[in-house]
Write a protein that binds this DNA or RNA. Structure first.
Lengths: 184, 184
DNA sequence: ATTTGTGAACCAATTCACAGCG
DNA sequence: CGCTGTGAATTGGTTCACAAAT
């Protein structure tokens, strides 16, 4: 039986072992005090408690360079996510891109999201289109959005939003390393 | 003279106005009590205090789909970042990709990073290559890394690392929306 | 002996509340 | 008045320390 200790988990994840234990304990968990956690039991418990026991249906809006990269990103399907639809305003792209994922014009976002019961949206459109596009996703009943555009989307009732912006990330690092330089 | 209040800033950013004021106050700031902050003064103060008054030199490792998308991402140069080098293990890519950015084989990472005084690295390589590539960047004296691979890079002395993983982001949203569904 | 689970202590960050100023 | 700046209160999360379990 495969085992893993909080210390080992912590090392792998770069997290304090105490935190690992505390977090797991919230699941009302049963680790073995002698030999750590049973891998199978822990995994099962996490799957149950975090509700990740089924594939999630996602869609992708924006089929530019970033969108195309995401479309081909195998890690998604390997980790329980299925891209059920792709959208773009450019009809040309919809007709030329080679993929098994069904592609639609952006005008049909709300319709398709509702029909296919799509839960999450990946937003890879230009900043100028982000707010409008998000609105369409929400109209279709989307539950969450990962927004890659430079525009910060404001949280909306019942829709969880995660803004990911490369420039912001770089700025964070710039500022921190700059600060370290000054104080070393 | 353009003015902006903490309330307005907060709305734009989706952040509590109190936090805005407190944060700005740490800069030893002079907002006008009647009419909010002078846009020009605030901007200048932020630039000075956060040390973002010069272009930062970055490099890009991995010229696959994601890397290529980043290479063409104009927002970078528009926000004070200059891609001074691109790297890939595949010599073919280095010779065929059309760009003004100088491209080098991955074997030269440390060399070029040091020579060009590159401060930040964008890591868009497959997970399997992430640790090794990060090591080369660090050997070259890089100060920070934005890691897009699925592998979590552990913090290294003097090198600030930011892990960005699409799958993780999706999982966060999945778990949260799933939780909301159960408790609504 | 190890390693979990957890109360207690600690620390950082957010929010509150309001005095002070134009 | 409206808005800033900031002490005080609160919250949330991390770390500590140790008793319990095997």
């Amino acid at each position: 039986m495969q085992k893993v200790s909080s210390i080992e988990l912590g090392k792998q994840l770069g997290i304090n072992a105490n935190s690992i234990r505390k977090d797991i304990s919230y699941l009302g968990e049963i680790g073995n005090c002698r030999a750590g956690y049973s891998l199978a039991t822990l995994k099962e418990s996490l799957i149950q408690n975090l509700n990740i026991n089924r594939k999630r249906v996602v869609c992708l809006v924006g089929l530019g360079r970033l969108g195309s990269a995401i479309l081909k990103y195998e890690q998604l399907s390997q980790n329980g996510f299925k891209i059920a639809a792709g959208f773009d305003t450019n009809i040309n792209k919809i007709e030329t891109i080679q993929t098994k994922v069904p592609l639609y014009p952006a005008s049909e976002i709300a319709l398709v999201v509702r029909r296919e019961r799509i839960e999450l949206g990946l937003l890879a459109v230009p900043g100028a289109a982000a707010v409008e596009t998000a609105k369409r996703l929400i109209d279709g009943g989307i539950r969450g959005i990962v927004n890659f555009s430079a525009v910060v989307l404001r949280p909306e009732k019942g829709v969880f939003i995660r803004n990911i912006d490369l420039v912001s990330e770089l700025r964070v690092i710039s500022v921190i390393t700059g600060f370290l330089d000054q104080n070393s």
